[in-house]
Amino acid sequence: MLEPSHKGKTFPPFTYTIERSKLREFLLAVGEDDPAYDAGDPPLPPTFPTLFAFWSGSGLEGVLAQVGVEIYNVLHSEQEYEYLAPIHIGDTVEGQAAITNIYQKAGMDFMEIVTDYKNQAGVPVLKDRALIIVRGEGG
């Protein structure tokens, strides 16, 4: 069972710089061929921010390590992105994650993690809300 006292825990800020080659890699992986993403200053695909945390090493994996959970014991239940301002190639975003809720439902442990991102000018650009299910030990 997840320790309820982890609720409210915040994590050190992390940064990620958006690169065009990483955007291309993402588009190829998804099978997205919209020429809008070839523009000089293209918008980012809606779920591109997924990699901010993974590639910073301080996102979900870091959060899970802090609460003693292995990533392969985690199921992703819900994901939400709220886009507050455009993010551009070359921007460095800073994310800060917090455990905003921990609860049990139907015999399963749920943990909500909210990560707020701002750009290098300090402007809020993105809110990332993930709800994960932690599977029991030894299942």
Binding site: Y37, P46, L75, E78, E80, Y81, Y83, P86
Partner: peptide, 13 residues
């Protein structure tokens, strides 16, 4: 909707 048009996107797996 066009690239860049999404303001909020939420899913339940």
């Amino acid at each position: 909707a066009g690239a860049g048009a999404v303001r909020r996107y939420k899913v339940r797996f």
